Simulated assay, not measured.
Amino acid sequence: MALNPTAEALLAAVLASPRAVAAHDKSAWVNLFTADAEVNDPVGSRPHVGRAAIERFYDTFIAPNGIAFDVAADLVGGHSVVRDLYIETTMSTGAMVRVPMHLRYDLAALDGDWKIVRLAAHWEFPAMVTQLMLRTGVRGLTASAKLGPQLIANQGLGGTFGMMRAIRSVGKAGKTAVTQLFSAAAATDIGRVRTLLDDSTVLQLPAGSTVSVEEFTNRTRNMRWDKLIAAGRTVSISVELDGAPGVAFVDFAASSHRIDAITVFLDENA
């Protein structure tokens, strides 16, 4: 089944991003965003807001590197596109890291074109640093030594400390809570699901369609999942529901492990 015209246009706007990255075309990449757009990469770090900040982001993290996208699924819901993928980054020293990731692009129509309002990159900063430092040898150590000065030169001390905020996340405890919840839902154990959620939790299945706890539990029976990523106050997770691939975003409250919201993007054309 083909995508509807709006979904096709949204996906086309998003696919222009990796093309511009591969071509190292800074102007083309930055022009994909609205003037007041936000790049939150990784989620949990301080966002880069506005054209000047997004240009500095490009200079710091894209320009010096070769970046390849290994995509498992592209999902469209509402005016958002979610990509389930791995990104392989080859740094100037030759060090290469392969990072599991979920990318969410929120878009808006502007002068007849779809533009990116927010890019949220869900990946685990500490795991990437560990891979770079411990598994890529001298090339990785050299790349790490170069990255620090690049960060300070392009982002300033404030931006550097803002990046370091990504070290903190809901982490293992968040992943455990999500695993418990999804296990209970897959087993249609609504009593257990109710103990892990509360009346204020917003459940969207699929994205844009709010459902009750009962409907969420019934629709996710026999659900399968893997690739849990804890970034900031969110755990993202690759799922398969009735044969359709998807990505779920589980958002936690600011100061606890209470689940605020679950949004599931599904490939409903699968």
Rank of each mutant, 00 (worst) to 15 (best):
T6N: 12
A7Y: 10
E8A: 14
L10P: 14
L15C: 03
L15H: 10
P18A: 02
A23H: 09
F33H: 06
T34F: 05
E38H: 06
V39E: 06
V39C: 11
S45M: 09
R46G: 06
R46P: 00
E55C: 06
R56D: 14
R56L: 11
T60M: 08
I62F: 10
A63T: 12
A63C: 05
P64F: 05
N65R: 11
F69E: 04
V71E: 07
L75D: 01
G77S: 07
G77P: 11
G78L: 09
D84C: 02
L85H: 10
I87L: 11
T89K: 04
T90I: 03
S92I: 10
V97M: 01
V97W: 07
V99H: 00
M101P: 01
D106A: 15
L110P: 03
I116W: 10
I116Y: 04
L119E: 14
A121G: 14
P126E: 00
T130A: 15
L132N: 08
L134C: 09
R135L: 00
G137S: 05
G140R: 02
A145H: 13
G148L: 15
P149N: 04
N154P: 06
G156C: 03
G158P: 00
M163E: 06
R165Y: 09
R168V: 11
S169R: 07
V170Q: 00
G174M: 01
T176V: 11
T179H: 08
T179S: 14
Q180H: 13
L181C: 04
F182I: 04
A185L: 10
A187R: 12
R192A: 14
R194S: 09
L203A: 07
L203Y: 08
V213L: 14
E215Q: 13
T217P: 04
R219Y: 02
R224S: 12
W225N: 11
K227D: 05
G232A: 00
G232V: 08
R233K: 15
G246W: 01
F249N: 07
A253P: 00
S256M: 07
H257I: 09
D260H: 06
L266D: 04
D267W: 12
E268D: 09
N269P: 02
A270G: 04
